[in-house]
Structures are given as C-alpha cells and as structure tokens.
C-alpha cells in the first residue's frame, strides 16, 4: 500500500487548509464585534440579533449556498458589481468557498468568544476605568486579553468545522478540481467515481487525522492561554 498523497489529494488538502484558514481569520473580527455587542450591549432587538447571527448553525448549508449564489453570483447585482468594480469574484472561486465556510462557522466563534466575555468579571473593567483607562483602552488591555482562551478555542473549533463544510461550498462555488474541490468535495467525488473507494478511504483518514490534531491543539492552546492569564 502506498501512503504518499497523489497530486490531486495534496491539492485538495492544501486548498482545504487555505480556505479554512482564510475563513476563520476573516470571520474573527466580525465574531469579536458581535460577541462584544451581545455580551455587553443592552439594546432593543438584542435577542433578535442573537438569533439571526446563529442562523447559519440551524439553516441547511445548501440553503446558505443558494442564498450566496442569489446575492453574489456573477449575474446577481451585488456579485456583478463586485466583479466589475473591485475585481473580486466569489462565484466558482476559492474565495467564495472561504466566504461560505466563514458564514457557516461564524456562530462557533461567536459563541466561544461571547461565553468567555460573559465569564469575565465586569468589575475588572470598572477597576481599570477608575485607574484612568478609557473604554477602548479597557477593551485592549483588559477585556480582550482575558477573552484570549475563548478566542483560541473559537478559532480552532470553527477551523475544524470549516474543514468539513460541504453543502454550502458545492452549491455556491461548485466542485472544480484545484479551485473549489476541498477535502469533503474530493471525498464525495471519489465515492461517486467507479473504483474510487480506496481513494475515498484515504481522504477520510486524512480528515480524521486533521480533526484529531485540531481538537488536541484547541485543548492545549486554550489550557496554555488560561495558565498565562491566571498568573
């Protein structure tokens, strides 16, 4: 048996890693802002916003892929405008795959960060204020550093979930080898093609390995961040 990856497999693996990395890091600022708003803000419609932001968790991914196609497809007004004026193409490109992944996994990050913000003692921020720290200063020196364990665990959970994203990607950006064919799509393709069982099994093993590494890394990094915080 040969365990070296074929060029196509390597391509799918690297594409998956690229798509997921870009997805989680691009979603992070939005997740942070939303988590701060939901954890600290008291405003009308807070529960409604919370529900909306968690929609990607309950909506079928295919629906999200379809909605993205409707809004950002090359013939949709916004998609066409972006392509013509900014040269950004979402449809049928890896950027579109990253966007779909970012939206689907956004709630994972939001939830982890929000929980860690809510667990933090608001008294510490008040103490910082009496010591002369402005709101932004407090955010940068107290609130965010204390939320780092939550941010890390959110990032890694979202990354792992993003690696498995299938429905939204195949609906929005299709299954183009080397462009949008991430690991799950490659597995799907292998199963669909006659005699592809062995390749599908190999790709599944890679997926499982990555998932295990991600979960272990999440545990380790979160624990390390916690000890660094509780000096």
């Amino acid at each position: 048996m040969n365990f070296t990856l074929t060029p196509a497999e390597t391509e799918a693996l690297l594409l998956s890693l690229k798509v997921s990395t870009v997805a989680v890091f691009c979603a992070l600022p939005f997740a942070l802002a939303a988590a701060l708003l939901l954890a600290r803000g008291r405003f009308f419609g807070r529960n409604l916003l919370n529900g909306l932001l968690h929609l990607p968790l309950v909506l079928p991914p295919v629906v999200i892929g379809y909605l993205l196609l409707v809004v950002l497809g090359t013939r949709a007004p916004l998609g066409a405008w972006l392509l013509d004026n900014l040269g950004i193409r979402f449809a049928f490109s890896w950027i579109g795959a990253a966007l779909a992944s970012a939206i689907i996994t956004f709630p994972f990050q939001l939830r982890a960060i929000r929980l860690s913000l809510e667990a933090a003692d608001p008294g510490l921020s008040a103490a910082a204020a009496t010591l002369g720290a402005s709101r932004l200063d407090r955010l940068a020196t107290i609130t965010l550093p204390l939320a780092i364990p939550g941010i890390i665990s959110g990032l890694i959970t979202a990354f792992a979930a993003s690696l498995g994203e299938f429905g939204a990607i195949i609906t929005f950006v299709s299954n183009i080898p080397g462009v949008t064919r991430t690991l799950p799509l490659a597995i799907f393709t292998a199963i669909q093609s006659p005699g592809g069982e062995w390749e599908a099994a190999r790709l599944c093993a890679i997926s499982v390995a990555i998932a295990i590494v991600a979960v272990l890394a999440a545990e380790l990094l979160t624990a390390r961040a916690r000890t660094a915080i509780a000096r």
């Binding site: 008294g123 510490l124 103490a127 009496t130 402005s134 709101r135 107290i142 915080i229 000096r231």
Partner: peptide, 22 residues
C-alpha cells in the same frame, strides 16, 4: 464626567487585580 477622567482612586472589597498582569 466619565469614570476614567475623574482621577478618583477606588479600592474595592475584592482586590480586583488584573489576573493577566504581574
């Protein structure tokens, strides 16, 4: 005047030390 501009020190019942700083 907002808290951070008042220049009034406050020692709370619980020390409220910042746990991520020495």
């Amino acid at each position: 005047v907002p808290v951070f501009r008042r220049n009034i020190g406050y020692v709370f019942q619980e020390a409220r030390l910042f746990p991520h700083m020495s």
